[in-house]
């Protein structure tokens, strides 16, 4: 905490001196070196993210092809649009189910692996294998497993139960959830383990000397020290969750079962049909929601820090 306060003071001092600065010659040599290193990626973000997003913002108030000013009409249209409501609802539901599930399972696995098992490295690698499997292969696996005449239906037939085209049933959503958790578990485990490795061992030793048990150590030392990691892992997991569209799209095309019809499906189809107006408005709403979510998480983290 002391270190953070020092950084703030230093930053404050720098800003003050910058405002008083008449020219840059007063600055120490090498002061801008870091900035130069950041500059290319910063330019990339501006050119490929911020400027296009400004254009998206502009287009959200214009007609699709004519470019005429329509005000908030596009926003009104998308909120009246049943496809948007369904996609947004499904996406929200997916996030609400997947993110806590992934964070919890990956934390549990990380804690087990952190217990200095003999085969920690091997298990860690095993958990990372799904990340290395190409999406196309996963899609083939899905089809082989969940097709009407696939392996899962075959197994059910073996038990005298009826098979189904699982990707065209409400189970499709849970298959998507499983796929996301399975694929990203290893990544989150590695992130949690990095967080666990950053906790000083002497804290646990001191607690044990004071008679603390495993649960107390976890609750009073591990969890509070993992909070900074929680923020990063949550944000990364949310961003990764949007990538699950690739599997959903490849396995079921533009129009999957309605339970796994996500915002990306809608955006994809709008783009195909030249509905740039609706797409821009929905993209602004989407970006706004994610931005707010990240801010909330940040605030929660800051609150936890204090």
């Amino acid at each position: 905490m002391k270190k953070r306060r020092n950084i703030r003071l230093l930053l404050h001092a720098k800003l003050q001196s910058f405002s008083k600065l008449k020219n840059f010659r007063g600055y120490k040599k090498g002061e801008w070196t870091g900035f130069y290193f950041v500059l290319p990626s910063f330019l990339g973000v501006i050119i490929f993210m911020l400027l296009p997003f400004c254009d998206v913002l502009r287009r959200s108030f214009l007609g699709a092809v004519s470019g005429t000013w329509v005000g908030l009409e596009n926003y009104r249209t998308i909120f009246d649009n049943t496809a948007f409501r369904l996609a947004a609802g499904n996406t929200l539901r997916f996030e609400m189910v997947c993110i806590p599930l992934l964070l919890l399972i990956s934390l549990l696995v990380a804690l087990v692996l952190d217990d200095k098992l003999k085969c920690t490295q091997l298990l860690k690698s095993c958990f990372l294998v799904p990340m290395a499997i190409p999406v196309a292969s996963i899609v083939l696996l899905w089809r082989a497993l969940f097709h009407e005449r696939g392996m899962f239906s075959g197994f059910l037939h073996f038990l005298n139960l009826p098979g189904e085209d699982w990707m065209n049933t409400p189970w499709a959503f849970w298959i998507l959830v499983f796929s996301y958790v399975w694929k990203n578990l290893g990544y989150d485990v590695v992130l949690w383990m990095a967080g666990l490795a950053g906790i000083p061992a002497n804290l646990y030793e001191a607690a044990q000397v004071d008679g603390a048990g495993k649960w107390q150590c976890f609750w009073h030392i591990t969890l509070p020290n993992l909070l900074p990691s929680l923020f990063t892992i949550t944000v990364l997991s949310i961003l990764n969750s949007f990538k699950v569209f690739r599997e959903a799209y490849l396995v079921a095309g533009n129009y999957p079962h309605e339970s796994m019809y996500l915002l990306q499906h809608l955006f994809n189809n709008w783009y195909r049909d030249l509905s740039m107006d609706k797409m821009s408005a929905a993209a602004v709403i989407n970006a706004g929601v994610i931005f707010l979510l990240v801010l909330l998480l940040k605030r929660a983290w800051d609150f936890g820090e204090r």
Binding site: N81, T82, A83, L86, N168, Y255, E258, Y261, L266, N269, W270, D273, S275
Partner: peptide, 13 residues
């Protein structure tokens, strides 16, 4: 019903 679900989703877009 299957067709209507899919097609109406498309039409709703």
């Amino acid at each position: 019903k299957e067709v209507v679900n899919q097609v109406n989703l498309y039409l709703a877009e």
